[in-house]
């Protein structure tokens, strides 16, 4: 009996370890449909590539215009015909993108357990487990609380607040796909708030491929400066 229990524990442990290490690459067709506060619309379509060991997000854009976007650290490079045409600083690093967090197996709390935020409240309501994360005291004047909801143990929504308690944006993770044991939302909806105005951004992912061993040169995109 003891041997059986030990075996079950060992199998569970090793399967967890192997699952957490198994997923390292994601490739997908994506589209981003956005309607801004000014009522203007934007459609972006293409393919996205990410390898969590290389930490470069590569967007091969086919629409509106053929070009590449590469996100490294806090920089986003716009590349046309292998030449960098512009560079922009980003507020977030690649480790806090959905691709990295999902591949690392931390999507259920959006990687907040690896951040300085701490849980202040957990509640269950309307079929959701809702967790409130508070920023560290030191940064409480810069960051507000974050509320995360899970449905069926999967991340459903995140709400970001300003330090004075105003809702800045909401994100919803919908239509999960299971690709060889890897769970990833087909749609991510973001609603941002600015005074009484709302802006929307719907990101869709399809033809998701995990651990693609082709196109290494795209995952490790060389940026010729």
């Amino acid at each position: 009996m003891l041997i059986r229990i030990t075996l079950i524990i060992l199998i569970t442990l090793f399967s967890n370890i192997s699952f957490s290490q198994a997923f390292f690459r994601i490739k997908a067709d994506f589209s981003i449909k956005a309607k801004g506060f000014n009522g203007k619309s934007q459609l972006t379509m293409g393919k996205v590539y990410y390898d969590k060991t290389i930490k470069k997000i590569v967007y091969k854009i086919k629409y509106p215009e053929k070009s590449d976007w590469v996100s490294v650290d806090t920089n986003m490079y716009h590349i046309v015909n292998n030449k960098v045409t512009s560079r922009k600083s980003l507020p977030a690093i690649v480790e806090f993108t959905i691709f990295h967090i999902a591949l690392s197996g931390n999507l259920s709390n959006y990687g907040l357990d690896k951040s300085p935020f701490t849980i202040s409240k957990v509640q269950q309501s309307k079929g959701m487990v809702i967790t409130t994360w508070d920023p560290p005291q030191l940064y409480s004047k810069i960051y507000g609380r974050i509320i995360v909801s899970n449905k069926n143990k999967k991340l459903y929504g995140i709400i970001f607040f300003s330090p004075d308690g105003m809702i800045l944006r909401k994100q919803f993770f919908k239509k999960y796909q299971n690709i060889n044991g890897f769970s990833f939302p087909s749609e991510v909806l973001q609603i941002s708030y600015n005074e009484s105005k709302e802006s929307y951004e719907l990101s869709s992912f399809k033809n998701i491929i995990i651990n693609d061993m082709n196109e290494d040169y795209i995952y490790d995109y060389y940026i010729k400066k």
């Binding site: 449909k33 459609l43 269950q124 309501s125 809702i130 409130t132 909806l189 719907l202």
Partner: peptide
Amino acid sequence: LFANDADLFEYDESKINTELNELN
């Protein structure tokens, strides 16, 4: 009290679909 936070996760899906219809 619990319902308050749960309500925050509700949104008007039809309104968003209408807003993004042209882009679809």
